[in-house]
Computed example of a mutant assay.
Amino acid sequence: MSQYGQTIKSIRESRGISQATLCKGIMSRSNLSRFEHQLYIPSFDKVVNLLERLNVTVDEFMYIDRHFLPSRYEYFYRKLIRAENYKNKEELSITAKQIAEYKQESTEFYELFLLSQLSLLESNLPAELTMTDISEYMRPKLFELENWLFYDFRRLNNFIQIFQLDEALFLYDRAITEFSKYEAFSKENNISIHLSLNVGQLLLAHHQPEKAVIYFKKAKQYARQQNKLFQELVSDLFIEKIISRNKEQNTKDSLTVLMEELIRQGYKTTVDSLISYIEEK
């Protein structure tokens, strides 16, 4: 059980809480002492009760137990997404190769391997798998879901482009409805934003800009609700891109003025990344 007992002890002592105070009504003091010395494994509900008394979430506890490091999966997932977002093909190839070394470790890691392969294909880089290989594995996984968990929303968001447009719209509607039960979940929950952005891009790829605007506006709404400025700007840029195709603009729009101001404030790399991302879609 890792060093969970020792981590509990470390947090308890940092809060100045005695063993007697922490364990009252949860377990005996002797069992808490044995747990802190890795000699006893309490039931999960008792551990949760201890954490609640310490005002520590399970996610934070796991993070502390890993010495304030992300899990290996989260580390590589973030590294992959960062390489994609900044269009760094060299970093993308390196990260995909690293992920491949762990693909047999778990189902979660194998799906991360599939995602890395999808990223390589979309960037026109050499890959071990084809789009068909990825689709044959992931499509049934997502279509057969009955009870959606947080991880499943991320899975759909990552692989939504492998579906036909009508399938993607169907899964989007279902996911947004199911995701409502996670609105108060403390874990990062940008899923509704990214799903809306991705569906909008699918509609653009299928030459349906008017419908795409609907989903980009949804993404902007979700981003504003969650104070996610970067995603709000991405949504606005997509909308502006579509509008500018349909009419001549002789004056600078407010979004262009904002971009110029961000550059003046020292955010040129962010602005370049935003514009590059939009122009490639």
Rank of each mutant, 00 (worst) to 15 (best):
residue 186 S to D: 07
residue 262 L to K: 03
residue 163 F to K: 09
residue 232 E to N: 05
residue 52 E to C: 12
residue 136 E to S: 05
residue 126 P to A: 02
residue 270 T to G: 06
residue 170 F to I: 10
residue 50 L to V: 06
residue 189 N to P: 07
residue 61 F to V: 04
residue 244 S to M: 11
residue 260 E to Y: 01
residue 152 D to S: 13
residue 251 T to M: 10
residue 138 M to Q: 11
residue 137 Y to A: 11
residue 117 Q to G: 14
residue 160 I to W: 00
residue 96 A to R: 00
residue 68 F to E: 13
residue 239 I to W: 01
residue 61 F to E: 01
residue 45 D to G: 00
residue 102 Y to I: 02
residue 223 A to M: 06
residue 47 V to L: 15
residue 240 E to A: 13
residue 136 E to D: 15
residue 192 S to D: 09
residue 148 W to E: 05
residue 18 S to K: 10
residue 238 F to N: 06
residue 107 T to R: 13
residue 30 S to C: 07
residue 112 L to N: 05
residue 245 R to A: 08
residue 177 T to S: 15
residue 213 V to T: 14
residue 246 N to E: 13
residue 242 I to M: 10
residue 254 S to Y: 04
residue 181 K to C: 06
residue 79 K to R: 15
residue 247 K to F: 04
residue 252 K to N: 10
residue 202 L to Y: 08
residue 249 Q to S: 13
residue 91 E to M: 06
residue 141 K to L: 10
residue 190 N to L: 11
residue 167 E to L: 03
residue 259 M to F: 15
residue 279 E to G: 02
residue 35 F to R: 05
residue 160 I to R: 00
residue 24 K to P: 00
residue 225 Q to V: 10
residue 94 I to H: 12
residue 93 S to R: 12
residue 164 Q to M: 13
residue 185 F to A: 08
residue 199 V to N: 07
residue 275 I to K: 15
residue 280 E to L: 08
residue 30 S to N: 13
residue 215 Y to H: 07
residue 185 F to S: 05
residue 87 K to H: 15
residue 5 G to P: 01
residue 199 V to D: 05
residue 206 H to W: 09
residue 93 S to V: 09
residue 256 T to W: 04
residue 95 T to Q: 02
residue 76 F to W: 13
residue 141 K to P: 05
residue 60 E to F: 07
residue 161 Q to V: 11
residue 1 M to I: 11
residue 160 I to F: 01
residue 9 K to H: 10
residue 211 K to H: 14
residue 205 A to Q: 14
residue 120 L to W: 03
residue 272 D to C: 04
residue 259 M to E: 08
residue 18 S to W: 01
